[in-house]
Design a protein around this nucleic acid. Sequence first.
DNA 1: ATTATCTATAGATCTATAGATAATGC
DNA 2: ATTATCTATAGATCTATAGATAATGC
Lengths: 188, 188
Amino acid sequence: MMGRSQEEKAQSRHRIVAIASRRFRELGLGGISIADIMKEAGMTVGGFYRHFESRDELVCEAMAAACQEMEDSVLTKQPTLKLSIQTYLSETHRDEISSGCLVSSLVNDTARSTDDVRKVYAERLEASLRLLESQMPDACEGEFREKAILIYSAYVGALGLSRAVPDSELSRQILDVVASQLISLFPV
Amino acid sequence: MMGRSQEEKAQSRHRIVAIASRRFRELGLGGISIADIMKEAGMTVGGFYRHFESRDELVCEAMAAACQEMEDSVLTKQPTLKLSIQTYLSETHRDEISSGCLVSSLVNDTARSTDDVRKVYAERLEASLRLLESQMPDACEGEFREKAILIYSAYVGALGLSRAVPDSELSRQILDVVASQLISLFPV
DNA sequence: ATTATCTATAGATCTATAGATAATGC
DNA sequence: ATTATCTATAGATCTATAGATAATGC
């Protein structure tokens, strides 16, 4: 119906990526159609391919955007390992999947995806591991990276399990006991 | 084309469930069509709905079958905690996803599924936790169940991450460092 | 007669493209 | 003139159903 300025086009693209980034985390990489993403961005499906070459390109961009978002929020708000553990393994993080960590919410999807997707994912994982290493208290003897890998594995597993089980009591227990054990393993 | 005996029907059903159970773990719960599952079972799509009321019913049955399979193989073959850790976090388990543990390969799919699916999943998780508890060495002071939850979270996270990252060096490192740290945390 | 499976297809949905429309921007 | 978006649709695919076919089993 309308022509639009280049600035509006850039805003449209940003809106598409932001919505895709949230919906993919919530519903999985195959859980929402391009038509529905465009509708939520206030547009129709026909405009999509002037922004992206393919659906896969949007998947990569949306994952990269989710990574950047994590980078910005996490780095500033979690200065200590204890706070990082409590935040990652919180009921809030469990319930807000569409704005949460994609390393957990898309781990199965990524394993079944293209190499492009997996590379974006691995960059985010490496950044998270580096952050954990930097938060490791000096009291921790031994290799920081190895400990970071154990902590992050427990993160991804515990958050994933807490979202999968139907029993809310068990769900909370998983988050709580993994958090408290990680904290006691790596004392501040 | 043909009529078949009731015994053959039971075999057909078993074949459908066995194939679905493998393919769902490999490709995700939405990653393969009923037509393709039936084709792999040597039949066509038309016969499906005399066996199952809906696709969802097959998903539940296939997951329950995968659970039973785990129950049978794991219980007998992993008498000690150390062996359990080494088996779960092995490159073999990582690479044989279609016969591997569904708690790891379908954790994200389950979180986005119906309550029926989530209940089957939770039963499997509880059985695995009980097994881990029973393998816990007496030297471990403290609550066995809490330790089992930490170990299983690390299992699910580490195996998932090792399948998602594109770098095979990192993939192996994740499995190795999580396994060795778990073993040192819970000495035999 | 019943039924296990087949062929065929309706109806829904999804990706991607074609052509129209109405602004932008030289 | 260019282009950002729209409407419309082609072509593929998926779930579920209808009706036909050829054995089973009373």
